[in-house]
Design a protein around this nucleic acid. Sequence first.
DNA 1: CCAGAATGCGAGCGACCACTCGTGTTTGTC
DNA 2: GACAAACACGAGTGGTCGCTCGCATTCTGG
Lengths: 230, 230
Amino acid sequence: MFVNRVRRAGDNHVPDTEKPASAGKEQPRRRQARGERRIAQLLQAAASVFCTSGYSAASTNAIAREAGVSPGTLYQFFPNKEAIAIELGDQLMHRMRETYGEALAPVDPATPLEEAVAAAVDRFIAFNTEHPVFFTLMHGTDIPGRIAEEHDALHSTLVGRIEGLLSSLLPDTPQDVVTRTAHVCLGIYKAGLELVLTHEGAEREAYVQEVKNVLIRYLEPLGGDRLGRA
Amino acid sequence: MFVNRVRRAGDNHVPDTEKPASAGKEQPRRRQARGERRIAQLLQAAASVFCTSGYSAASTNAIAREAGVSPGTLYQFFPNKEAIAIELGDQLMHRMRETYGEALAPVDPATPLEEAVAAAVDRFIAFNTEHPVFFTLMHGTDIPGRIAEEHDALHSTLVGRIEGLLSSLLPDTPQDVVTRTAHVCLGIYKAGLELVLTHEGAEREAYVQEVKNVLIRYLEPLGGDRLGRA
DNA sequence: CCAGAATGCGAGCGACCACTCGTGTTTGTC
DNA sequence: GACAAACACGAGTGGTCGCTCGCATTCTGG
């Protein structure tokens, strides 16, 4: 016989205005302000522990301890360990969408290649340095299937955006070449991100510049003279 | 009270001519042909299981089952799970040294950049497609410390080799720039390797070519006209 | 102020897994 | 053939970790 507990962890935002309609299952569970605070605490603690240990090596007890609560309290708000990573991933994905929306959306063919690349790289790297967990969750080989799906979805979205950007810069190019080029660009960025994150200060800045150089030099010869060479 | 078992797993090659000298601890344990065969079997099984599950998710029982032996038999030849990965890593490292010795050693400044890059990339990619475990062991975030050390050692060695190659091509370049460039090159290669391994056939070949393109276009502008432009 | 819900606790349960041990079988040696 | 050593087995052990349960405490609506 199962308990009817928890089951509602991904509910921050939409805090009020419960929907009492629909089929009679999964009844609300009103959340108090204290609970919302606990959830934020737990997610922050989880982020910290995931960063240092990786997902599967991180124990739920360690997360609870880091958050200063008991294991039981953790499971008051999350049905299982995976749900913590899911919620963390969802929140990051949400903020990510805000960021890369600005970073890649404006496919203005007037802007020169160097500026476009520099702006996109800067934004993405800023996001990853602000949220180190993101890198851990997206690059861990031991992550639960659901997060891997989110990663794949993000990856596909990014490739799609880059494809759009590329095909507006290189109009007469076969689709498969555009797709491949987009994948290569994203791969270059990921490799560069790793290098950037393992360095500090001036050295880090130098690597950021190198990533931009690699991308620009890779893309420049493709467009003939259509890519504004400033 | 400890058992005096096993403790000798990394001993293939040097099969005969035991050294009965030295301090009286760790007595030999002569290995029969059957045992050598089992070790090979187990390593192959471990490679297979590591590839599909990753290191920490792979259970020793699963490895034994894959090899068609009992868990006890596995521990007849390896003191623990980590030792299996170590031995596997050592063997791969050995073959790797043979490969990259040929791939990066000849720092002949006469060969044009494109050829040097193409040769190195081809060899390394061939090695990784022949030994998929290598990629798993070197990129897993959940690997034991000892393998991580081996990975770091290999990484440093490779960076050193690339530095040598670069500074012979770009003589009047500050050392820190050379080092950074070498790291970037290796990063590009690794990212490319991942792309290559996730594709098959003609698509794979196309990605191989792209990796070469990225490296060449990245390095070409650095050397002024010293880099032979064919 | 007082039910009832939400929150909080922490010992403990069950499952899994690396690893062991007692015992039986094969192989090499004299 | 006899003895020892290497090999093989697989049920079992200890420890870890995700997760639970009964109960105490705090909040909220009426």
